[in-house]
Amino acid sequence: MNIIGPDYLIFGVDDVAACTEYLTAWGLKPVNVTESGGLFETLDGTGIIVRHKADPTLPPPLPTSNMLRQQVYGVRAAEDLDAIEAELGRDRRVTRLSDGSIEFKDDHGFELKFQVTIRRELDMPAEKINAPGAPAQRRPNEIGVWEEMPALPRTLSHVVLFVPDIEIAARFYCDRLGFVITDVLTGAGPFLRPRANDDHHTLFFIRTPEYMKGCEHLAFHMGGPTELMVAGTRFVKKGYQSFWGPGRHKFGSNWFWYFNSPLGCHFEYDADMDKHDDTWVAREAPMGAEASQIVLFEMREKWAPGGPPPGAKH
C-alpha cells in the first residue's frame, strides 16, 4: 500500500464566495472555480475542493458543525488501490468509481477516497541559507529576500483530525492502511506518516469529545521559513486572522503559522519538516506549550528604531 498523502480535502461550506476569496488569498490557484465552488490547487496540484454544503454531489456531512466532507489520498499506482480495496473490503463497503478510485469510511465515519495520485513532481530549490563553516548556498550577489519574492504553498502537507478515540483511529490507519507512528503527544495523540512518504507526518489526531469530530487543521508546505513568514505577513496585512504563530514545532521540527478560516478549521503554512525512515523510534512527550514548540513569535506591525531626536521640532 504505497499511500503518499492527501491529494485533496473536500469541504461543504456555507459561503462559497468567502472561501473562494480566502483560498485565493492563501496562495492557491483556482481551477475551474465557479459560483458553486471548485478546486484550489498548490504548485504540485494537490489542494482544497469546496462546494456549497447543499451540493448533492458532496459526500455526506459529519454529524458535527465541521465542514470536512472527504479526504482524498493519493497512492503510487493502481495496484495500491487493489491492495487497499482487498484489505478494507473484508469488513466494509468499498465503492469502486469509474475512474478507478475507491471510497469507504474509516472507523470513525470519516469519508475517505484513494486514487492514483494527481500530484505533479516539483523541481524547485529549498530556501537557501549561508552560514559560517558550511558551503554558501547562495552564490555571490544572489540575494535572500526581496519585496515581491514568491511565497506560494507547494503542496498539501497534512491534515489533523479531532477524533473521540485515539486507539480506534491509530489502529485503523496503522493496521489497515500501513501508516507508521513517528511521535506521540500524550494527552493529544500520535503523528502518522504513510509508507510512501518520509515526511514526519501527514496525519495527526487530537482526542476530543464526539461533538467535535472533524478537521482541526490542514497544512501546506512552503519553501522554507522565510517563505512561511512572508506569506503569513502578507496574509495578515490583507486582514486575515492569525491564530497561532509563527513558530517552530518540536516534533516534526516544522515551522508553523496557523490562521482562522471560513472553512471551519485552521489553515497552516508549514516549512522544513523532518524526514524519517523505518529505523526511527517514536518519541513521546506530554502535550503542552513546552512540548509543542521550540519558539513562538507573534506578528507586529513593521517598526524600526529611528526618527527625529528627542525634543526636535516637527
Binding site: 465541521n66 491564530f243 478549521c265 485552521h266
Partner: peptide, 8 residues
Amino acid sequence: TCHSHHAL
C-alpha cells in the same frame, strides 16, 4: 461564529 472550529 468562531472561525477556528466553526463554533456557533
